[in-house]
Computed example of a mutant assay.
Amino acid sequence: MAKMHAIHANGSLPKPSLWHKLHKYLTIVKTELITKASNRRFCQEVPSLELLEQEVAWLKEYLSPLGSPVVLCHNDLLCKNIIYNEIKEHVRFIDYEYVGYNYQAFDIGNHFNEFAGVNEVDYSLYPSRDTQLQWLRHYLQAYKQLSRENQGNGGGVVSDKELETLYVQANQFALASHFLWACWALIQDKYSTIDFNFFRYARLRFKQYFKAKSVVTALEMPK
Protein backbone atom coordinates (compact mmCIF):
# COMPACT_ATOMS: atom_id res chain seq x y z
CA MET A 1 0.00 0.00 0.00
CA ALA A 2 2.83 2.40 0.83
CA LYS A 3 4.39 1.71 -2.57
CA MET A 4 1.12 2.59 -4.29
CA HIS A 5 0.56 5.68 -2.14
CA ALA A 6 4.05 6.94 -2.94
CA ILE A 7 3.35 7.16 -6.70
CA HIS A 8 3.31 10.86 -7.52
CA ALA A 9 0.93 12.63 -9.88
CA ASN A 10 2.36 14.73 -12.67
CA GLY A 11 1.18 18.31 -13.01
CA SER A 12 -1.37 19.86 -10.67
CA LEU A 13 -2.10 18.40 -7.27
CA PRO A 14 -4.86 15.76 -7.54
CA LYS A 15 -8.18 16.20 -5.79
CA PRO A 16 -9.63 13.45 -3.57
CA SER A 17 -12.35 11.40 -5.26
CA LEU A 18 -14.20 10.78 -2.00
CA TRP A 19 -16.57 13.77 -2.01
CA HIS A 20 -17.44 13.52 -5.70
CA LYS A 21 -18.18 9.82 -5.33
CA LEU A 22 -20.24 10.29 -2.16
CA HIS A 23 -22.35 12.99 -3.79
CA LYS A 24 -22.71 10.89 -6.93
CA TYR A 25 -23.92 7.85 -4.99
CA LEU A 26 -26.25 9.94 -2.87
CA THR A 27 -27.74 11.56 -5.98
CA ILE A 28 -28.45 8.13 -7.44
CA VAL A 29 -30.05 7.03 -4.18
CA LYS A 30 -32.24 10.16 -4.20
CA THR A 31 -33.25 10.07 -7.86
CA GLU A 32 -33.34 6.35 -8.63
CA LEU A 33 -34.44 4.87 -5.31
CA ILE A 34 -36.89 7.54 -4.21
CA THR A 35 -39.78 5.27 -5.19
CA LYS A 36 -38.69 2.93 -2.43
CA ALA A 37 -39.39 5.63 0.13
CA SER A 38 -43.00 4.49 0.23
CA ASN A 39 -41.84 0.99 1.09
CA ARG A 40 -42.20 0.51 4.83
CA ARG A 41 -39.19 -1.82 5.02
CA PHE A 42 -37.00 0.75 3.28
CA CYS A 43 -38.19 3.58 5.53
CA GLN A 44 -37.69 1.59 8.72
CA GLU A 45 -34.28 0.10 7.97
CA VAL A 46 -32.46 2.83 6.03
CA PRO A 47 -31.78 6.40 7.24
CA SER A 48 -33.95 9.07 5.66
CA LEU A 49 -32.68 10.95 2.63
CA GLU A 50 -32.59 14.12 4.73
CA LEU A 51 -30.35 12.44 7.30
CA LEU A 52 -28.10 11.00 4.59
CA GLU A 53 -27.59 14.46 3.12
CA GLN A 54 -26.81 15.87 6.56
CA GLU A 55 -24.24 13.16 7.22
CA VAL A 56 -22.46 13.69 3.89
CA ALA A 57 -22.18 17.42 4.66
CA TRP A 58 -20.93 16.65 8.17
CA LEU A 59 -18.35 14.15 6.90
CA LYS A 60 -16.87 16.67 4.49
CA GLU A 61 -16.76 19.40 7.12
CA TYR A 62 -15.26 17.12 9.76
CA LEU A 63 -12.76 15.08 7.73
CA SER A 64 -11.41 17.62 5.24
CA PRO A 65 -9.39 19.61 7.84
CA LEU A 66 -7.66 16.50 9.28
CA GLY A 67 -4.67 16.98 7.00
CA SER A 68 -4.56 13.55 5.40
CA PRO A 69 -2.51 13.75 2.18
CA VAL A 70 -4.12 12.94 -1.17
CA VAL A 71 -2.36 9.94 -2.73
CA LEU A 72 -2.98 7.27 -5.34
CA CYS A 73 -5.34 4.83 -3.60
CA HIS A 74 -6.75 1.41 -4.35
CA ASN A 75 -9.99 2.35 -2.51
CA ASP A 76 -11.25 -1.24 -2.28
CA LEU A 77 -8.72 -3.29 -0.32
CA LEU A 78 -10.91 -6.04 1.02
CA CYS A 79 -9.06 -9.26 1.72
CA LYS A 80 -10.08 -10.93 -1.56
CA ASN A 81 -8.33 -8.15 -3.49
CA ILE A 82 -4.99 -8.90 -1.80
CA ILE A 83 -3.06 -11.90 -3.12
CA TYR A 84 -0.17 -13.31 -1.07
CA ASN A 85 2.24 -15.67 -2.78
CA GLU A 86 3.72 -17.67 0.08
CA ILE A 87 6.40 -19.31 -2.06
CA LYS A 88 7.72 -16.06 -3.55
CA GLU A 89 6.81 -14.09 -0.43
CA HIS A 90 5.24 -11.16 -2.22
CA VAL A 91 1.89 -9.39 -2.12
CA ARG A 92 -0.13 -8.22 -5.12
CA PHE A 93 -3.30 -6.16 -5.31
CA ILE A 94 -6.03 -7.00 -7.83
CA ASP A 95 -9.30 -5.35 -8.96
CA TYR A 96 -8.38 -1.76 -9.75
CA GLU A 97 -11.94 -0.73 -10.62
CA TYR A 98 -12.08 1.96 -7.95
CA VAL A 99 -8.46 3.15 -8.06
CA GLY A 100 -7.93 6.91 -7.98
CA TYR A 101 -6.51 9.77 -5.96
CA ASN A 102 -8.00 9.95 -2.51
CA TYR A 103 -7.13 10.58 1.11
CA GLN A 104 -4.38 8.34 2.43
CA ALA A 105 -6.34 7.77 5.65
CA PHE A 106 -9.44 6.69 3.70
CA ASP A 107 -7.57 3.86 1.98
CA ILE A 108 -6.18 2.67 5.33
CA GLY A 109 -9.44 3.10 7.27
CA ASN A 110 -11.32 1.32 4.49
CA HIS A 111 -8.86 -1.58 4.66
CA PHE A 112 -9.30 -1.84 8.44
CA ASN A 113 -13.08 -1.94 7.97
CA GLU A 114 -12.70 -4.84 5.57
CA PHE A 115 -11.20 -7.00 8.31
CA ALA A 116 -14.84 -7.63 9.24
CA GLY A 117 -15.49 -9.54 6.02
CA VAL A 118 -18.23 -9.22 3.41
CA ASN A 119 -20.40 -12.33 3.33
CA GLU A 120 -20.53 -12.78 7.11
CA VAL A 121 -19.74 -9.35 8.52
CA ASP A 122 -18.27 -9.37 12.03
CA TYR A 123 -17.00 -6.04 13.34
CA SER A 124 -15.39 -7.69 16.36
CA LEU A 125 -12.65 -8.48 13.80
CA TYR A 126 -11.89 -4.78 13.32
CA PRO A 127 -8.21 -4.47 14.29
CA SER A 128 -7.42 -3.45 17.85
CA ARG A 129 -5.45 -0.30 18.64
CA ASP A 130 -2.26 -2.33 19.22
CA THR A 131 -2.65 -4.17 15.92
CA GLN A 132 -3.33 -0.92 14.09
CA LEU A 133 -0.31 0.82 15.60
CA GLN A 134 1.96 -2.05 14.59
CA TRP A 135 0.53 -2.01 11.06
CA LEU A 136 0.70 1.78 10.79
CA ARG A 137 4.32 1.94 11.97
CA HIS A 138 5.41 -0.51 9.26
CA TYR A 139 3.34 1.40 6.72
CA LEU A 140 4.78 4.81 7.67
CA GLN A 141 8.33 3.51 7.62
CA ALA A 142 7.84 2.24 4.09
CA TYR A 143 5.88 5.28 2.93
CA LYS A 144 8.48 7.73 4.19
CA GLN A 145 11.30 5.78 2.57
CA LEU A 146 9.47 5.65 -0.76
CA SER A 147 8.20 9.24 -0.88
CA ARG A 148 10.49 11.61 -2.75
CA GLU A 149 9.95 14.50 -0.39
CA ASN A 150 11.25 12.38 2.48
CA GLN A 151 14.35 11.06 0.76
CA GLY A 152 17.39 12.17 2.70
CA ASN A 153 15.17 13.68 5.37
CA GLY A 154 15.09 11.18 8.19
CA GLY A 155 14.46 8.17 5.96
CA GLY A 156 11.87 5.88 7.46
CA VAL A 157 12.07 7.11 11.04
CA VAL A 158 8.54 7.39 12.47
CA SER A 159 7.78 9.61 15.44
CA ASP A 160 5.12 8.79 18.02
CA LYS A 161 3.23 11.93 16.96
CA GLU A 162 3.15 10.84 13.31
CA LEU A 163 1.97 7.38 14.32
CA GLU A 164 -0.81 8.67 16.56
CA THR A 165 -1.90 11.22 13.97
CA LEU A 166 -2.36 8.57 11.30
CA TYR A 167 -4.15 6.33 13.79
CA VAL A 168 -6.72 9.05 14.48
CA GLN A 169 -7.05 9.97 10.80
CA ALA A 170 -7.54 6.35 9.65
CA ASN A 171 -10.20 5.59 12.24
CA GLN A 172 -12.11 8.77 11.52
CA PHE A 173 -11.93 8.32 7.75
CA ALA A 174 -13.22 4.78 8.29
CA LEU A 175 -16.58 6.49 8.88
CA ALA A 176 -16.61 7.73 5.29
CA SER A 177 -15.82 4.19 4.14
CA HIS A 178 -18.89 2.83 5.94
CA PHE A 179 -21.11 5.53 4.49
CA LEU A 180 -19.77 5.21 0.93
CA TRP A 181 -20.20 1.44 0.72
CA ALA A 182 -23.62 1.59 2.37
CA CYS A 183 -24.86 3.95 -0.37
CA TRP A 184 -23.11 1.80 -2.99
CA ALA A 185 -24.89 -1.29 -1.67
CA LEU A 186 -28.30 0.40 -1.91
CA ILE A 187 -27.60 1.09 -5.58
CA GLN A 188 -26.36 -2.46 -6.15
CA ASP A 189 -29.50 -3.78 -4.47
CA LYS A 190 -31.56 -2.30 -7.29
CA TYR A 191 -29.30 -2.87 -10.29
CA SER A 192 -26.87 -5.72 -9.62
CA THR A 193 -27.49 -9.24 -10.92
CA ILE A 194 -25.02 -10.70 -8.40
CA ASP A 195 -26.55 -13.15 -5.92
CA PHE A 196 -25.85 -11.17 -2.76
CA ASN A 197 -28.06 -9.47 -0.18
CA PHE A 198 -26.94 -5.91 -0.86
CA PHE A 199 -29.80 -4.38 1.14
CA ARG A 200 -28.75 -6.26 4.25
CA TYR A 201 -25.13 -5.21 3.66
CA ALA A 202 -26.20 -1.55 3.33
CA ARG A 203 -28.06 -1.76 6.65
CA LEU A 204 -25.01 -3.27 8.35
CA ARG A 205 -22.70 -0.54 7.07
CA PHE A 206 -25.07 2.27 8.09
CA LYS A 207 -25.50 0.68 11.51
CA GLN A 208 -21.74 0.45 12.03
CA TYR A 209 -21.29 4.02 10.80
CA PHE A 210 -23.58 5.44 13.47
CA LYS A 211 -22.22 3.09 16.12
CA ALA A 212 -18.59 4.05 15.43
CA LYS A 213 -19.23 7.78 14.94
CA SER A 214 -19.31 8.76 18.61
CA VAL A 215 -16.32 6.52 19.41
CA VAL A 216 -13.90 7.71 16.72
CA THR A 217 -14.86 11.39 16.92
CA ALA A 218 -13.79 11.25 20.58
CA LEU A 219 -10.24 10.49 19.44
CA GLU A 220 -7.96 13.52 19.71
CA MET A 221 -5.03 14.49 17.56
CA PRO A 222 -1.70 14.52 19.42
CA LYS A 223 -0.45 17.93 20.49
Rank of each mutant, 00 (worst) to 15 (best):
H90Y: 12
A9R: 09
Y123F: 15
A116G: 14
Y98P: 02
A185R: 01
W135E: 06
Y103A: 09
Q134G: 12
S147Q: 10
Y98G: 06
I28A: 12
S159R: 09
N153V: 08
V46C: 05
N85A: 06
H8Y: 07
S192M: 01
G154R: 06
K24L: 13
G100W: 03
G100M: 02
Q188V: 08
L52D: 07
D107P: 00
G154M: 03
V118L: 00
L219Y: 06
V70Y: 01
H8W: 04
W19S: 05
N75M: 14
Y209C: 01
V71Q: 02
N85L: 02
I82L: 05
Q208A: 05
G156H: 04
K30V: 11
W184G: 07
L140C: 05
K36L: 13
F115E: 04
A185P: 05
K207V: 06
Y201E: 08
L33F: 04
E220P: 00
N197R: 06
L186E: 09
A174W: 06
L26Y: 00
G154H: 05
N81C: 14
A176D: 04
F210S: 02
Y96V: 05
A185S: 15
T131F: 10
Y209R: 01
F115T: 09
K223A: 13
L51C: 07
L66S: 14
A185K: 02
D76R: 05
L78Y: 01
A176K: 03
N85E: 10
E164A: 07
E149R: 14
Q44V: 12
S64L: 08
F199C: 10
P14V: 10
R129N: 04
L63K: 00
L219P: 01
S147G: 12
E89Y: 05
L22M: 14
E120I: 12
K3F: 09
H111N: 14
Y103K: 03
N10H: 12
V157G: 03
A9V: 07
Q151F: 09
V121Y: 05
P47D: 11
K24A: 12
Q54E: 15
Q169T: 10
C73A: 14
P127T: 11
P47Y: 11
V216W: 04
V70W: 00
C73H: 03
A202N: 02
Q172T: 09
Y98M: 01
G11C: 10
P47K: 09
N110K: 02
L163W: 07
K30N: 15
A6G: 02
A218Y: 09
R129F: 06
H138S: 15
Y209D: 01
A142F: 02
F179D: 04
A185Q: 04
L133D: 02
E53M: 10
T193M: 13
V216M: 03
A57L: 11
L146W: 10
L204Q: 15
K80A: 14
N102A: 10
Q132L: 00
G117R: 02
L133F: 10
L18K: 00
Q208T: 12
V99S: 08
Y123I: 10
F179K: 09
V216N: 00
Q141M: 08
N39K: 04
S159N: 07
L33W: 01
